[in-house]
Computed example of a mutant assay.
Amino acid sequence: MKKLIAILTVLATLLFASPTFAYTVKSGDTMTKIAKENNLTLQELSRLNPQIENLDLIFVGQTVHTNNPEPEPAKPEIIVGYSEYEIDLLARLVRAEAESEPYQGKIAVACVVLNRVDSPSFPNTIKEVIYEKGQFQPVQNGQVNKPADEDSIKAVHAAIKENRNFAAGSLFFYNPAIATSRWLDSRETTVVIGNHVFKQ
């Protein structure tokens, strides 16, 4: 009988034990202290513990959750034919060239680079097209090194997938209001979006 009670006690302990991401409140604890000890902000700790309505009122023996169960890591989206580096580089160029332009204008800028990759008149990779000497102002002034924003990343994905022909074969774009060189004026216009004129 004693053996049976011992086994049941062990089982109950295993079944009803607090999970490893829970903390039992001790004397002198505060939510701020618990948050700090677990590398959380007070807001994060509060979000993990909706059952605690008043953060200034916790008691000894109370269970405070200190971590989310481990989420399954997100699988990166794979785009066939381009490396992660190339996608990021293109998104950074799009941000630098078209940050204040409409979303469709961002897609069109990405399409220009992709059209150049496909054209025999330009290099064969995104990196080589972007870094070809004298082609893109953000490369010269270092703006291309700043991180891409969410809209630019989405625009690059759209340009590669569903909107690949959006810029109608454009190989160039410029803002005529600020351009210092006018040689693109004579080329055929394919589309105008925002401040940018796209040319073949």
Rank of each mutant, 00 (worst) to 15 (best):
E84K: 13
I193V: 11
E132I: 05
H196D: 10
D56L: 08
S83D: 02
E70D: 07
Q143L: 14
E84S: 14
F136W: 08
A179E: 11
Y82E: 01
G61D: 12
Q43Y: 00
T180F: 03
E77R: 13
E37M: 11
E44T: 10
A179K: 03
P50V: 03
L42A: 03
Y23I: 09
A159I: 11
L55P: 10
S170Q: 05
S83L: 02
L42D: 05
P147A: 01
S27R: 12
T180H: 06
K133F: 10
E97G: 09
S170V: 05
K26A: 15
S83R: 05
A91S: 15
K3F: 09
A179V: 07
N124E: 13
E86V: 02
E101T: 06
S152F: 01
Y85C: 02
S46K: 11
L4I: 13
Q137A: 12
A96S: 14
K146I: 08
E53M: 08
R92Y: 05
N49E: 03
A158N: 15
E53I: 09
I126G: 03
K36L: 12
N115M: 07
A74W: 05
V25Y: 08
D56P: 03
Y23M: 07
L42R: 04
F136C: 11
F173Y: 14
A148W: 00
V109W: 04
A168K: 15
L93P: 11
S46F: 04
I130C: 09
I178Q: 12
P147T: 07
V192T: 14
S121K: 15
S186Q: 12
Y23H: 12
I34P: 06
P176I: 01
F59Q: 12
R47T: 11
K154C: 05
V60T: 13
E44C: 02
T125P: 08
S83E: 04
I78A: 08
L93E: 01
P50M: 00
I153H: 00
I7P: 05
N39Y: 11
N68C: 00
R187K: 15
S186R: 01
D185I: 04
K106G: 06
Q43A: 14
P73S: 03
L4Q: 10
A12R: 02
T41Y: 05
P120H: 02
Q137D: 14
V94W: 01
F16D: 07
H196I: 04
G81C: 10
K199Y: 07
L90N: 07
S121C: 01
I126R: 08
N39E: 09
T189R: 05
V117A: 03
N165E: 15
K133L: 08
V191I: 15
V109E: 04
N141Y: 07
L45A: 06
I130R: 02
S170D: 04
K2F: 06
